[in-house]
Computed example of a mutant assay.
Amino acid sequence: MSYPFRVTDATVDVVEALLSGDDELYGLKIAKSIGRPSGSVVPILMRLEACGWVLSEWERDESARGPRRRFYRLHADHLGEARRLVAERKTASGKAIPGILRPGLGGAR
């Protein structure tokens, strides 16, 4: 299947993190969870957002310490494609497919 963005291992890792179901995913949290530098994760998130796969919004709580965070989530219209992408890559690489790929789970709100 072809995708509207370049599919790299890092891209698959980001998409997999977005499928985790966590409603408060921001760049640094995703980077830490997948073990990649935020300098590579944020551009991937921006590319995914530019092609419509990812939605983002600024943190609403202004009383939080530090700079506001930008939260990311998969667009509901692309959840199936995202699961398929991760499953294809994990199967091709011989890695076990994690439980987050079970139907009914995903990062949509």
Rank of each mutant, 00 (worst) to 15 (best):
Y3L: 01
P4D: 12
P4A: 11
P4F: 04
F5R: 01
F5L: 03
F5H: 05
F5A: 00
F5Q: 06
F5P: 01
V7H: 06
T8F: 03
D9E: 05
D9G: 14
A10E: 04
T11N: 04
D13I: 03
D13V: 08
D13P: 10
V14F: 01
V14R: 02
V14P: 02
V14Q: 05
V14Y: 02
V15R: 01
E16Q: 09
A17I: 05
L18V: 01
L19D: 00
S20V: 08
S20Y: 03
S20F: 07
G21P: 01
G21S: 08
D23S: 12
E24R: 10
L25K: 00
Y26E: 09
G27I: 01
G27K: 07
L28M: 13
I30N: 03
I30E: 12
I30S: 12
A31N: 08
A31E: 10
A31F: 07
A31W: 08
K32G: 08
S33T: 01
S33Y: 07
R36Q: 14
R36V: 06
R36L: 14
P37S: 09
P37V: 00
P37L: 01
S38Q: 13
G39I: 07
S40Q: 13
V41S: 01
V41D: 00
V42C: 08
P43F: 15
P43N: 10
P43S: 02
I44M: 08
L45K: 03
L45S: 10
M46Q: 15
M46W: 12
R47W: 12
R47M: 06
R47H: 09
L48W: 04
L48Y: 06
L48F: 04
E49W: 11
A50M: 09
A50G: 13
A50L: 07
G52C: 12
W53P: 02
V54Y: 04
V54G: 00
E57L: 11
E57T: 14
E57D: 13
W58F: 10
W58L: 14
E59K: 04
E59L: 06
R60K: 15
D61V: 06
E62C: 14
E62H: 15
E62A: 12
A64G: 11
A64C: 15
R65S: 13
G66Q: 12
G66W: 09
R69S: 11
R69H: 10
R69A: 05
R69F: 10
F71S: 02
F71C: 02
Y72S: 02
Y72I: 00
L74C: 02
L74S: 02
L74K: 03
H75A: 05
H75Y: 13
A76H: 09
H78I: 04
H78P: 08
H78R: 04
L79D: 03
G80V: 00
G80R: 07
A82I: 14
R83K: 14
R84Q: 14
R84E: 07
R84S: 14
L85P: 10
R89W: 06
R89T: 03
K90M: 10
T91N: 11
T91I: 12
A92I: 00
S93A: 08
S93Q: 00
G94Q: 01
K95P: 08
I97H: 01
I97D: 00
P98L: 05
P98K: 00
P98Q: 05
G99K: 11
I100G: 02
L101I: 08
L101S: 07
R102L: 10
P103E: 12
G104S: 08
L105Y: 15
L105K: 15
L105A: 14
G106V: 03
A108F: 09
R109H: 15
R109N: 12
R109Q: 11
